[in-house]
Design a protein around this nucleic acid. Structure first.
Lengths: 337, 337
DNA sequence: GTGAAAGCGCTAACAC
DNA sequence: GTGTTAGCGCTTTCAC
């Protein structure tokens, strides 16, 4: 490309001149105002077309104090983000809704080392609002984003502030029903591979597990953290088995971790679903890809994504929006438990 | 959050007033100019800190004609993008390099229906340059992006224009060595599951396959398109088997598709690696996750991502950059062939 | 229905 | 080393 062409990009002024009207009229046409005569409208449209005019976003947002852009902030390492199909669903849901709006969505991978830059970007007025997918206790920079633009969280934030918005499922309940399901099948030696302890989703599902066990008057056979990754799940299951206990059933706090659990189980000569019942969480793509297919707790990730986006759109449009949206979960029975 | 706080964001003017200097001096400090006295510098810094000042990006970019942002354009459906670990590596590589620069990177998922909006965004001066990961023949909107900002393509574009930049591997050669490897092991009935015919990578690997077969005086046992997806790979392998031919070996043009191939093979009672040799392409995370581990053609995706980013950074900085960068490939021998 | 004019918050000559 | 002065390209009153 030719760098001069950047400078040469048509301005509203040129369009106006060509169409024989004022800047204001062009602006009205571009912004869809009705108060324009048919002839002017036609002239402007043609000029825009001929000049390939695209309004300069910076100028526009400087004048209007709006960017018509929202950020999808991913406070994760790249590999974890791409490794878990859960994020794919969330993003797809968000993208779907934002796609129908006139906002543009840009994804920002804000892993630890990139968070300072991301913060500057977000606070520098580059977007009108932000959606935060996945949230860790340590992500304190997010608070400073929320000071400046509306933020919608995917999952309840670690510290909920009065005017936070979030879309979530009841993870405590999810952990509970998952465990209760296992218990109802007659299992007594039940272990769990939990999610990270710096994420509400991880903490809550573990709570649910403990609650269900306590209600049944049982002690957990084992509790190991798997960090929501396949490898972490494998490692956790390995620790459980190495410690000498072979559970009858294990509640794994994410489908992806369950994949790791399967691998380790088989490594030790244990067949998932037959020798050890396995219950997942998410109902993501991996649950059906696994053999035997994974019995799991379904959380509607796509819907969750859609909700997050519409809540943000509502806020941006000045419409009332619910601060907390809790979506329903359900056990999906398959072959592993 | 409080909407008034947005309007209340400190401006350079306020910082200047508080520090007792002019706007220019503040600007100099913010932009790291050396020509500022220590006392002024100190005063400005304190003011910035107290006011939590963050320069307004729109104003800045309007005045400087630079955005200090680059776009990572993904012309794919969300699920394909997230489904293939190849993209994860590319993005990680790009992110790594951009992360060290003072540019911010924002990812834009520009699937068919979103491409018009993405085009407007890209042409509206929102970014200084773009990296396009994965490129289809049908993505004509990209040409119009390249008219306005520098673009670096991941993979050779369908129609290379004189001033295009891209980073790629030699896919024809990749397909050839993969097939030659299979042939060298004594296989004669060799089939291929190819990539999409609207992507140069798909076309070229198939060419390489055909070349190698022709050189050996052999006819392909079968050629089926798998669209670079796991499901597509499974379907393609299924078509091959259903047509009555059972190849001794199959060159699958991506690791992800090979996963689908494994599944179908086993479904038909054929063990990958023993009954049918399978050769992949990518050397992505799936190749080692598979059992038996996948023999494949390694393309250095992470490096590819890094290169794309540095080429773009070079262009943006006015440094000379190579239009075509071709990275080396190699066969990685594992257990499937 | 349309245009003139002010100004969004910043950078970048240009003086001093 | 520092301040003054023009804009950057657009939206948005406010007259007419």
């Amino acid at each position: 490309m030719d760098l001069t062409s950047v400078r040469g990009a048509a301005t509203i002024e040129e369009v106006a001149a060509r169409a024989g009207v004022s800047r204001s009229t062009v602006s009205r046409v571009v912004n869809g105002s009705t108060a324009v005569s048919p002839s002017a409208l036609e002239a402007v449209r043609r000029a825009i077309d001929e000049l390939q005019y695209v309004p300069n976003r910076a100028a526009r947002s400087l004048a209007s104090r709006q960017t018509r852009a929202i950020a999808l902030v991913i406070p994760e390492q790249t590999d974890r983000f791409f490794g878990d199909p859960f994020f794919a669903s969330i993003v797809a849901g968000i993208g779907e809704v934002i796609g129908e709006s006139d906002y543009i969505m840009n994804m920002l991978i804000a892993s630890d080392d990139a968070s300072a830059k991301a913060l500057g970007y977000l606070r520098g007025g580059s977007v009108d609002g932000a959606i935060v997918a996945s949230h860790h206790t340590s992500d304190t920079f997010l608070d400073r984003v929320a000071d400046v633009v509306p933020v919608v969280y995917g999952g309840r934030p670690a510290r909920v502030r009065a005017d936070d918005y979030y879309v979530d499922v009841d993870n405590v309940e999810g952990g509970r029903v998952a465990t209760a399901y296992l218990l109802a099948r007659g299992h007594r030696r039940v272990a769990t591979v939990s999610g990270p302890s710096d994420m509400p989703a991880g903490i809550d599902r573990l709570h649910g597990f403990r609650n269900a066990m306590a209600e049944a008057g049982l002690e957990p056979a084992a509790v190991e953290n798997g960090d929501f990754t396949e490898m972490g799940g494998a490692l956790a299951m390995n620790r459980i088995l190495s410690s000498g206990v072979t559970p009858e059933a294990v509640f794994v706090a994410s489908d992806l971790m369950a994949r790791g659990v399967y691998t380790v189980l088989r490594d030790k000569g244990l067949e998932p679903g037959r020798d050890v019942a396995v219950m997942g969480f998410d109902d993501s793509a991996v649950s059906t890809a696994l053999t035997p297919s994974l019995t799991t707790v379904r959380q509607p990730s796509l819907t969750q994504g859609r909700h997050m986006a519409s809540v943000l759109l509502d806020i941006l449009a000045g419409r009332p929006a619910a601060h907390a949206t809790i979506l329903p979960i359900e056990v999906v029975e398959r072959d592993s438990a």
